[in-house]
Design a protein around this nucleic acid. Structure first.
Length: 216
DNA sequence: AAACCGTACAACCGCGATCCA
DNA sequence: GTGGATCGCGGTTGTACGGTT
């Protein structure tokens, strides 16, 4: 039986008040982030540490960008989702000022619906059978022969390819799935995204798994 | 005007990963 | 090496709000 993360009694839940926000902001401005477990007590908040962390990271941080997503941001979310799946923190890491929660909410409330309307399965980014239009972001029906340009792009020797190039490949070259092999993906100071991906091509005769090192 | 419904988004919960004594 | 504490993530829920009937 898991212990609750915080004492249920004397703990506020639900929407944060302005006073609570201000207390948290004041405390973090003086003491910095971290030690979330001790922040509520130190800041005089009747909240659990997790709640404080979430509130700060998603809404109170000064570098957060609010409001509707620009078209290029939306495009990037779709492309990254095709690559990474529901790894919202990773996706948000590529969108300055956006948080994982915001990206996730935006996906579920806007993009997901939009893709479904376009006849695209938001889970695998594939066009539903029989749907006439073709999205610029999704793979189309599989080809029967090996796609040479795809093979050229994605080489066994773990060559580096550009992010846009891979996205184009995903969009145009009938890739049926992209699976991240390693959980250890990091975004370092030079903003490179190191991923070890397995890409499955659609046709049986050329179905092969290629490991690539994606730097973007 | 009121009830109902759909949407958007803030917040919570549970779990795995990581840290540290 | 181990176990508890903490962190971070993704899924889910709750609720406010606007539109429709």
């Amino acid at each position: 039986m898991r212990k609750p993360c915080c004492d249920k009694e004397n703990i506020n839940k639900g929407a944060w008040s302005k006073q609570e926000d201000q207390k948290l902001i004041d405390y973090i401005q003086v003491h910095g982030e971290g030690c979330w477990g001790s922040i509520p007590k130190a800041a005089g908040l009747h909240r659990c540490g997790k709640s404080c962390r979430l509130r700060w990271l998603n809404y109170l941080r000064p570098d957060i960008k609010r409001g509707v997503f620009a078209q290029d941001e939306e495009d990037l979310v779709i492309k990254l989702h095709a690559l990474l799946g529901n790894r919202w923190a990773l996706i948000a890491g590529r969108l300055p000022g956006r948080t994982d929660n915001e990206v996730k909410n935006y996906w579920n409330s806007h993009i997901r619906r939009k893709l479904i309307k376009m006849g695209i399965d938001p889970n695998n980014h594939k066009l539903h059978k029989g749907f006439p239009s073709i999205s610029p972001h999704v793979s189309t029906a599989g080809t029967s022969s090996c796609d040479e340009s795809m093979n050229k792009d994605i080489d066994n020797n773990a060559k580096l390819i550009s992010f846009d190039k891979l996205c184009d490949a995903l969009a145009n070259k009938s890739v049926v799935s992209v699976t991240r092999k390693e959980a250890s993906s990091t975004i370092d100071s030079s903003s490179s995204l190191n991923l070890d991906l397995t890409i499955a091509l659609p046709s049986n005769d050329c179905e092969s798994q290629k490991t690539i090192d994606l730097n973007c």
